[in-house]
Amino acid sequence: MALNLSLADQIALELRADIIGGRLLPGMALVEVELVKRYNASRNTIREALHRLGQEGLTRYVRNKGVMVRRLEREEVRDVFVVRRTLELQAIAQSGALTADQCERMQNAIDATTLAREREDWRAVATHSLAFHQQIVGLMRSPLFDDFFAQVIAQLRLVFCAAPDEQRFQSPWLERDREIYALLVQADKPAAGQALSLYLDDSERVSLALFTHP
């Protein structure tokens, strides 16, 4: 990450991380005066940070309520998966053999997911699973794609928050992440790509079902 980020950019990144970590949920208000105190920043700086989050599709201004963490609509969920499928599958298709560093990062994400599941911390399970998929996109070695996909991951977190039963929603994915990782370690890109494609098809299906209204 660049070291010359403005304070507003740094604050926006921290707030995005809070969304990815499940600490800021859809419908929560981002109160300007509280953020000024939290970050010891000016109102203009906070407004600039919140504007950036709005541009990333993570917040929206609601009349008489102020800036709030967004609730995504069904068509937005579908679009998120179009982007996710494009980036993740392309990353696998053009990847070479995993380096030791790439293996370590992926294994760490899977280990963290495993530990969170053992603790039945389903919110953390989702966070660490998303980190694993961030590492898949990282195979392209593109800082621009990495930063863009971090925004996509934050939107995915807002999707997951719509699940009424976190345990049921998050339970199936760890074993499938392990399968994808094992295939990447074996340098079997076609099988890894196929496993990921099926994963994303199923993930999109159950995610869209959260936004189906009777």
Rank of each mutant, 00 (worst) to 15 (best):
N40L: 05
S42C: 10
L115G: 02
S203Q: 09
E118Y: 15
Q102Y: 05
L24F: 10
L15K: 03
I92S: 01
M106N: 00
Q55F: 11
M28I: 03
D79Q: 11
L87W: 04
K37E: 14
I92N: 01
L53V: 04
K189F: 07
G22Q: 10
G193D: 00
T212W: 10
G193L: 02
I46H: 03
V152F: 00
D146I: 10
G21H: 07
I153L: 06
F211D: 02
Y61T: 10
F148C: 06
C161G: 03
Y61W: 08
R71N: 03
N4E: 05
D101K: 14
L174D: 03
R70T: 02
I19W: 02
Y181F: 13
Q151P: 04
I180S: 03
F148Q: 08
P190H: 03
L198R: 11
S203A: 08
E104A: 12
L58A: 01
R141Y: 11
E75Q: 12
L15P: 00
E166N: 14
D201N: 13
L5D: 00
T86H: 15
D101E: 15
V62C: 01
A91H: 02
A116E: 06
G27C: 03
T45P: 06
A17F: 04
R78G: 13
R84H: 01
E34N: 13
L156N: 08
R47G: 10
R117E: 14
W122G: 11
E175C: 13
L200K: 08
T127A: 12
E179P: 01
A124C: 05
A195F: 09
W122I: 14
T113G: 10
Q151I: 12
A182S: 13
E166P: 15
P214C: 09
D188V: 06
Y61R: 12
H128T: 13
V36M: 15
L89M: 08
L30S: 12
R60K: 04
E104Y: 09
R157T: 03
E204W: 01
F145C: 05
D165F: 11
T113K: 13
E104M: 08
E104V: 05
G27S: 03
I11Q: 04
T127I: 05
V185D: 04
H213F: 13
R84M: 04
I20W: 05
E175H: 15
M1L: 08
V159N: 02
R38T: 13
F132R: 03
V67K: 00
L30C: 12
L183G: 01
V137N: 03
D9H: 13
P172V: 10
S142L: 03
V80W: 00
L87H: 07
S171L: 15
G96S: 11
D177M: 11
A150H: 12
S203K: 06
H128D: 09
